[in-house]
Amino acid sequence: MSALLEAEGVAAFYGDFQALFGIDLEIGEGERIAIIGANGAGKSTFLKTVTGLLPLRHGSLRFAGSDIAGVPAHRLVALGIAMVPEGRRLFASLSVEENLAIGAYGRRPGRWNLGLIYRLFPVLAERRAAPAKALSGGQQQMCAIGRALMANPSLLLCDELSLGLAPIVIKDIYAALASIAGEGTTIVVVEQDINQAMAMADRLYCFQEGRVALEGRPGALTRERISAAYFGL
């Protein structure tokens, strides 16, 4: 298994506040990874560091074999890293279709196009001309996933996909994610819902206060060990 993303001793700060204390993590090509942890454990911070939105202070980050420390966010997209940010963050003044189209801004070659996104999420096709903010929460999440896919990423990072969504919608979205992973895209999901995370992931990382507290395959981990790593008991 060749590593697509390798993090070694990754440390990140918000101003003087240290949020990550040396994260070691390795993600193989085609893997489905879930990162779980309590609020403030550093999950989203880690994704922000990988996507270049937050500077890497210590440690190293390698993507597809090359060093990506200090590479600005907009160039990482061209290398194949796309993110579905926490809270969706769709562009309010753009329509649904324009939001999807701008995902392809970097013109990275690949299989995804508007037609395939609409086949994956038919409801977006119906509402293609609507302003993005007129969509329901679940539809907005689909639009955010579609927008990230339009960049034809080899690594798709999803931050808090299920936040604020109804269980039935969450089920739909994870079903779509499974079919995306089936096409060979490597997926990292940050998730607070442990059951959801264990159901979808090949491997699991549990963060606690900016460190990796536990790592392993869902089948090999007991509830007790996960709870202990999650809550720091």
């Binding site: 939105l53 769709l90 995902g103």
Partner: peptide, 10 residues
């Protein structure tokens, strides 16, 4: 709208 999200689009 959102310059940080825009960077994530490349």
């Amino acid at each position: 709208d959102d310059q940080e999200a825009a960077q994530l689009m490349g």
